[in-house]
Design a protein around this nucleic acid. Structure first.
Lengths: 127, 127
DNA sequence: CATAGTAGGTACCTAGAGGAAAGTAATGGA
DNA sequence: TCCATTACTTTCCTCTAGGTACCTACTATG
């Protein structure tokens, strides 16, 4: 196996079973993949260290793991330049770019509703 | 604390830092919260056992945990009927319903692009 | 000679989500 | 009397994402 990067080998481990969006969640949304995709989507092609500095607190190990996973899933394109200090560039693929409307919807929902969630929590914790 | 249900107490534990959609991911997308929200969104008000049967393989412990979390976040409304065998009904809240366009976008992306991801994986694993 | 800088790899450890199995209160029915 | 049902709770265990820390090759620069 290629791995340390790939997730569930089986395609239908149905925690989802009849929930058509669960597979997408598995591919696009996790603690670090979302910020990485967002950064590449917002700021264009970037080098490893740029991403590392932009995404605060991510460790190089995890950054490598997530980038490999995204590359394997076809969402990110990696370009290696065999120069003196090695140079690697990452950019979002066309498939990755197709997530744009999804990100827009998400950002909009966040802007409108995040504080409602916070209010709900306060109310719940009070009762 | 209320808990075993609440996540990160601090609001800005910035794994995200300047990624506006990371908080939403934390609230809406996880292995089980997504299928639960989807089931309530698709099939309307349901009892605990109905959800348990619909969402294959979920354990009662986890179902309770996720439902409590969703209730606290204001996405789900819980109604308790103190009857002989107790009866509890769950339904999506108005805030939860506002996720509908998001789910629609997700479902559409899945329908169009999931097999492209699969192709990319096959190609990657071959090279 | 030593250091810095790039893009990682590796070994080890922790924390938290989740799974398995059993228990609980209350009551109606066989 | 025993069993079933509902909506959980509790205990114990596993598994994996992620964190910490250190190592690698290569070269330019002081």
């Amino acid at each position: 196996m290629t791995d340390a990067t790939s997730r569930s080998a089986a395609v239908d481990v149905d925690p989802e079973a009849a929930c058509p969006i669960a597979p997408v969640v598995d591919i696009v949304f996790s603690r670090w993949t979302t910020p990485i995709l967002w950064a590449l989507h917002e700021y264009g092609r970037q080098r490893f260290v740029e991403l590392e500095r932009r995404i605060t607190r991510i460790t190089p190990k995890v950054l490598t793991q997530r980038l490999r996973q995204l590359e394997r899933d076809g969402l990110v394109v990696r370009t290696y330049h065999p120069e003196v200090p090695p140079r690697v560039e990452y950019e979002i693929s066309e498939l990755g770019r197709s997530l744009a409307p999804l990100f827009a919807t998400l950002a909009e929902w966040a802007a409108v509703n995040l504080d409602k969630v916070e209010e709900a929590r306060v109310a719940y914790d009070a009762g």
